[in-house]
């Protein structure tokens, strides 16, 4: 555990909680892509199956349970509790176009051809593109609420901090996981366009389609 890794995890946690609180407080999920949230729930579920097979640390176990719990709570709020406010007409990204190629790739490029390892690889690849439905929704509606941009900003910070974490781990521990690093770089690049707009437009972000 290094400072970048810890800060990255906390930024990730902040993003998840900001989104949950936004939906809960405003009683609305307008402007939020339910499809991205389904993908994140799928990411956490397939990645954290190792909760059942291996113990790493109390921190690790608690964070995994919180991430999974919050992901399903968010999906529940969007598709059940506040369904009436869900922007389904604009949330039209076809997630099968992500899930199918990512599923195929995880079978082809992985560390070990075993069920848990393939699911872990699937989750890593899927996470790298899971935000696309959300960015697509913003480009369709033309603008995002300030709180939604804070959510995206925290997610982007989390990805960037994980890159520093990997540089740290490579330098000081000689550790690197090429699958996680390549997917992480792709994911961070997807946030760069958003970051630029966040900084230059003073949080009032509209992603041009």
């Amino acid at each position: 555990m290094n400072i970048f890794r810890l800060a990255g995890d906390l930024s990730h946690l902040a993003a998840i909680i900001i989104l949950l609180l936004k939906i809960w407080k405003t009683r609305s999920c307008a402007g939020i892509s339910g499809k991205s949230q389904i993908l994140f729930a799928l990411v956490f579920t397939t990645r954290y199956l190792d909760l059942l097979t291996s113990f790493i640390s109390l921190y690790n176990t608690c964070m995994k349970i919180i991430y999974i719990g919050c992901a399903y709570a968010t999906v529940h709020l969007i598709y059940m509790k506040f369904k009436a406010t869900y922007d389904g007409n604009h949330d039209t990204f076809r997630i099968e176009f992500l899930i199918v190629p990512v599923g195929g790739l995880s079978f082809l490029v992985n560390h070990d051809f075993s069920p848990l390892e393939i699911l872990w690889t699937f989750s890593i690849y899927l996470e790298s593109v899971a935000i696309l439905p959300q960015l697509f929704l913003i480009s369709k509606t033309g603008e995002a609420e300030t709180i939604t941009t804070h959510y995206l900003f925290c997610l982007g910070v989390y990805r960037a901090l994980y890159l520093f974490n990997w540089i740290w781990r490579f330098y000081f521990e000689g550790f690197f996981d090429m699958i996680a690093i390549v997917a992480g770089v792709v994911q961070t690049i997807l946030y760069c366009d958003f970051f630029y707009l966040y900084v230059t437009k003073g949080e009032k972000v509209a992603i041009p389609s």
Partner: peptide, 10 residues
């Protein structure tokens, strides 16, 4: 651990 199969990150 230097084993990529040991997934200790979140």
């Amino acid at each position: 651990s230097n084993d990529p199969l040991h997934h200790d990150e979140l």
